[in-house]
């Protein structure tokens, strides 16, 4: 794939990243937040692949594998926590989880 300049690919991944970030900031549902987090992580994975492809190394793809694995682990734990939170608080509204402040 040597037609697409690296900068375009990076730009795409940055846009995806920002979209994910916006999702985290805007959505109130915890599961939606976790989904937006996934988007962010995958955007960075895309950036790695693009960078790796520019240098012709496999390192980018390896990093993407690692990112994928760890994102999955993170989200797995996250969903478990969300389950417990729902049992305890009976809501998935992120803003209602503000018992500790100041």
């Amino acid at each position: 794939m040597n037609g697409i300049p690296m900068e375009h690919g990076l730009l795409l991944s940055v846009v995806l990243f920002v979209l994910g970030l916006t999702g985290v900031l805007v959505r109130r549902n915890l599961i939606m937040i976790l989904m937006s987090l996934e988007v962010m992580l995958n955007a960075t994975g895309l950036a790695f692949i693009v960078a790796g492809s520019r240098w012709g190394q496999a390192d980018g793809q390896i990093m993407f594998l690692l990112i994928l694995t760890l994102a999955a682990a993170e989200v797995g734990v996250g969903l478990g926590l969300v389950l417990q939170i729902f049992r305890r608080f009976h809501t998935l509204d992120a803003d209602s989880l503000n018992g500790m402040k100041g």
Binding site: G20, T44, G45, A51, D59, G60
Partner: peptide
């Protein structure tokens, strides 16, 4: 932590590129 790890990875990717 997820958000900041994403930032971290983005930074790494930019440097790598």
């Amino acid at each position: 932590s997820g958000v900041s790890s994403a930032f971290l990875l983005m930074g790494m990717a930019l440097i790598y590129s």
